[in-house]
Nucleic acid binder design. Sequence first.
DNA 1: TAATTTAATTTCATATTATAGAATTATATA
DNA 2: TATATAATTCTATAATATGAAATTAAATTA
Lengths: 237, 237
Amino acid sequence: MLLRIVSEDSGQGLTLSNITKTIGLKLSTTHRILSSLVEEGLLGLNPETKCYRPGFLLFELGRSANQFMIRDIYRPALERIAKKTRDTAYLVIRDGYDSLCIDRVEGTAPLRLMLDVGARRPLGMGAASLSLFAFSSDKTVEKILRFNEMRFREHSGMGIADMRKLIALCRQKGYTLTAGVVDRGVTGIGVPLYDRKNKIRGAISVAAISEKIDKTRYDDIAVLIKAEVDKTYHPPN
Amino acid sequence: MLLRIVSEDSGQGLTLSNITKTIGLKLSTTHRILSSLVEEGLLGLNPETKCYRPGFLLFELGRSANQFMIRDIYRPALERIAKKTRDTAYLVIRDGYDSLCIDRVEGTAPLRLMLDVGARRPLGMGAASLSLFAFSSDKTVEKILRFNEMRFREHSGMGIADMRKLIALCRQKGYTLTAGVVDRGVTGIGVPLYDRKNKIRGAISVAAISEKIDKTRYDDIAVLIKAEVDKTYHPPN
DNA sequence: TAATTTAATTTCATATTATAGAATTATATA
DNA sequence: TATATAATTCTATAATATGAAATTAAATTA
């Protein structure tokens, strides 16, 4: 909690009393924990202003999370996609049997946000999420189907047979499409992202309320996403 | 400790038993803490391989440590400096009344490493450290002198008068030079880094055992560092 | 396919540590 | 200089983590 609170501040840092108010712990408790975090280097303390800021260790630990660097790589592509489609563009990665949304650029069209950055869903539930899944090897697909069977049913009412049909259709199209079948009233179009070794590293999707994405646009949007993805320079590793 | 251990692994992640061996805690304890870290998102767990990796929250928290982005900015300059001088180049920032080494590129010359990344010293003790100090405003210099007086004496045997003289000399030269006065047998040459608002954001130094850096090279090295710094594009903010 | 091994997860009484509240110290403001 | 505000330290009690063992799951071998 403390790390989050201090990190969310974008200014000159937060004072102890400030942080204490936010977190709702006792002053002495907050002070002790903050001191420990400073001692370890997770936070820094400006001795003049007595303000706490993110520390060097936090920076270093963060850099070790290489897998998420994909976010920096595809940020510009995501922005262009959102701008051109006017819908919200998502960057999603696989995390075990979940998909994890790691970036989002909102479109200009008025629409309710579906997926927050940091949100986790069963792998396959959502256009990008489905891209991570449907374009994997048959063996992987089977494993995920088995593991997530109950979660699919719970989330969308779809059974294994429905999912298999959906995957087959998407593979044929070359992109994933969830026109209301995963989330009621939501249509998404997803494309997988491959690294230089042809391994799936993530997926980008565009999603909006179904009324806003006409059937005739499906292919166009997929082509648009693929074009922006192809334009993107993906460094080795 | 656990965050460090998991972050330091560059491979596919570490298993519980692996981590347990490294940290020396009991299996159950390690498991419990790891589970909490995963729950919070600081770590991720691959459910197939049961391997722990850095998590998305760690990435996000790390990105909030903007002040250290200077490291990415000056990395190439640091590499060029180390290559050209054959000595080790350091990137150092101010942290309260300490200086903090946040990056290092080793030279080709055989020499003992003086300063580890993450190392903290009294502000002024070292060439880069001194740059952060000597080129500050007179008011700031006085405050630092007073605060660090004892620490200077302890570290180098220098008193306030000695430090004043050293600062005056450095200001005159336009770069900092610590020819054995701060660390016995070590010579360093430092240059401050300014942002677009002319605020000191860090310092770069080249350091080696004194025998390796001849007096005649002092100016050349300072000019070389400055040239590389000037070449570097420093984005707004 | 069963048996064996290895690794992961859960449980619980005891030992350890954190907490709240109060006291003290330091810093800022009137 | 007095007053107010914020930071830091202290300590008995309340809360939590630990270690050891048991259980479950997964992988390997027979």
